[in-house]
Design a protein around this nucleic acid. Structure first.
Lengths: 197, 197
DNA sequence: GTCTATATAGCGATAGAC
DNA sequence: GTCTATCGCTATATAGAC
């Protein structure tokens, strides 16, 4: 096995870690370098400046924050479709790498315009609209009561977002993980009971 | 009318403004001083250091972020109690001073331990429990279906929090204000229809 | 109470030796 | 590609004149 030291990748990894802990502004080039095991000035052989590191981190910040958008036709499965969605959402909540990314987003949401715009586009411009289509499909299949699909997606999603928010705010031991798993299930039951025909 | 220049109060006000715009770490003593109209070093005649300014700002950060907790007995009014609650919540969302405070909280939630703990205590330790009592009362009065009161408060509150979140993320012109007012009302209708007997 | 001047430390970034 | 050394700038905080 060849051991190839990819310094550029290590810089990116260390930056991600530090950005999620201390925020972008409070992370110095010296902090990053010390984790990688090089001197501060050596970073500039791999990245032009700090901003280009930040951009590299941002680039794969939103790749896996939300469940993958499945074929809308699968929405005809009804409650089990939503259960699959929530399970995937929950896994992302407890994923260490995803948690770090989410912390970066939360920390920089009001400081960094690109992160804010990417977040808005992902959640409001894309994902809530996807969920709207899901609920619209369920209405056409007479699985749920007829109402405003976007409102349903918003009601459905907001509680998941609050749980994710809670998970990152509170320390995660095994007990709380079980507790939250239970809360996800209860949300599904509550929501489905209220919308289903 | 006596014009009394209360420099200490002006420092606090300027700090609040700047903290909400740029965050605590990115706000310099020079920035604060320049708004007040004094030199940076003069601040130290009023506050020992930057930390004491931060603490002063934090002290009244959570005084008016959430609706006032009313007498639980009033919960017997049912839907109109929740409507009053939401109206008060909505007013706080559109209040300029409250919006600034909320931005500070959001910016510092993952950076500043005291702000994070105060926020957790207010929302999870206090307010959601208050709302639980509200829904428990409604159950006793046979106004709503019997279920877990804490889950109801969480389902009720999460969507309001997401709307508040949205309001601070998006630019606020008159159109969006009307749009959000409508969304608050729709949430109430959706929620009440689902829980009421 | 405010000013100027300064101490001390940190930041991002560059130059040039190896 | 990494190092040492350094530049220019900004930060918080202090000392002492007025």
């Amino acid at each position: 096995m060849k051991i190839k030291k990819d310094t550029k990748a290590e810089i990116l990894k260390a930056s991600k870690e530090l950005f999620s802990q201390k925020g972008i502004n409070s992370t110095g080039m010296r902090d990053i370098a010390s984790i990688v095991g090089i001197k501060q000035s050596a970073i500039y052989n791999h990245y032009k400046n700090k901003e280009s590191i930040v951009n590299a981190v941002i680039d794969d910040l939103f790749l896996h924050t939300l469940p993958q958008e499945k074929d809308i036709a699968l929405a005809s499965k009804g409650k089990s479709f939503l259960r699959d969605y929530i399970v995937e959402f929950k896994i992302l909540c407890f994923d260490k790498a995803r948690e770090k990314e989410f912390k970066i987003v939360m920390k920089e949401l009001y400081n960094h315009e690109k992160i804010r715009n990417d977040f808005k586009e992902l959640v409001y411009g894309k994902h809530l609209k996807y969920l709207s289509k899901v609920f619209f499909t369920m209405m056409q299949d007479n699985l749920i009561k007829s109402s405003d699909p976007y409102q349903l997606s918003s009601e459905f999603f907001s509680h998941l977002l609050m749980l994710k928010f809670e998970i990152t705010l509170f320390k995660l031991d095994d007990d709380t993980q079980i507790k939250f798993t239970n809360l996800f299930e209860k949300h599904l039951d509550f929501f489905w009971e209220n919308i289903s025909l």
